[in-house]
Structure formats: C-alpha cells, structure tokens
Amino acid sequence: MEKVTVNFTLNGDHESITVNPNLTLLEVIRDVFGLTGTKEGCGHGECGACTVLLNGKAVNSCLVLISQVEGKEVTTIEGLSRDGSLDPLQASFIETGAIQCGYCTPGMILSAKSLLLKNGNPSDEEIKTAISGNLCRCTGYAKIIKAIKLAARNGKTKDAGGES
C-alpha cells in the first residue's frame, strides 16, 4: 500500500505524517500521536466517544479518513487546556459532577465546545441538540447540560474581564 503524507494542525502544532491511507483520524490520534483522551466506542458514528473538532466543528474521528484532514485544524481534548489552565468546559464538568465513568466526557466536551464557539449563550434546546450525537450511559445528561450552561456563563465573564 502506497503511503500518503498528510499536513494538518493538531492542537495548535503543525504536523506532517506519512502513513498508510487506510487509517482513520481516530487511529492516528491514538496510535501515532499517543493521545488517548479521544475514545473509541462504536466505531460507526453512533456514540460520539471519538468526537474531535475539525476546523472548529464536531466530527466523529472514527469516520474520518486521515487524508480528509489535509490542511485542516484538529483539536482533541488534550488541546483544550491552555498553559496549564483548564478550558471553562473542563472546569465546569468537574465542578458540576457531570462525569461518572468518564468514557463519554472528552467527546461530550468537544461537542459542547463546538456549540460554544458558535453560540456563547445557548438555550437548553440548543445544548441538547449539540450533544445529541454523544451517548452517556452513566449521568442521565442533566448534569452535563448544567455544566455546559455554567461554562457558557463562565466563558462570558472571562471574556468580559479581558482574558481569553
């Protein structure tokens, strides 16, 4: 199998990799880069555990072929914290207790991030739609929704304070 070279940005760093073309983005993130925060659940687009951001939008990395990320920006859960401080979403999930086993959490947070990037003040309905591709078998979702609302509020105060 002839290898392909793919150039993309991963969590802010430019990367150029030469790999077999039959790898998914999920396999590259976990096995080539060793970033194991992104999980595999179903492998078929049904559970959202593998969610990452591609140019700021949530996608299932289990259904993205590595060549499809050419020239794009990929963000995984490892790329959300900045200089050692957690993203408002990570902080609010901890504060609210929106995590039990934690398997869905990285994907859930990235789906929420994709929403907050577009809409800093989402309604409950908008939050539910944004996480409708992410299954959680533990929490019952109520605390997750609460955490996302809290992060939206905290994100705003931060912006108003001039930090980002």
Partner: peptide, 9 residues
C-alpha cells in the same frame, strides 16, 4: 440527519 457530527461531515 443523524447528529451534529454526521451533519458536519
């Protein structure tokens, strides 16, 4: 269609 992730791809 599907979910936000599926709609985005």
């Amino acid at each position: 269609v599907g979910s936000p992730q599926i709609r985005n791809t």
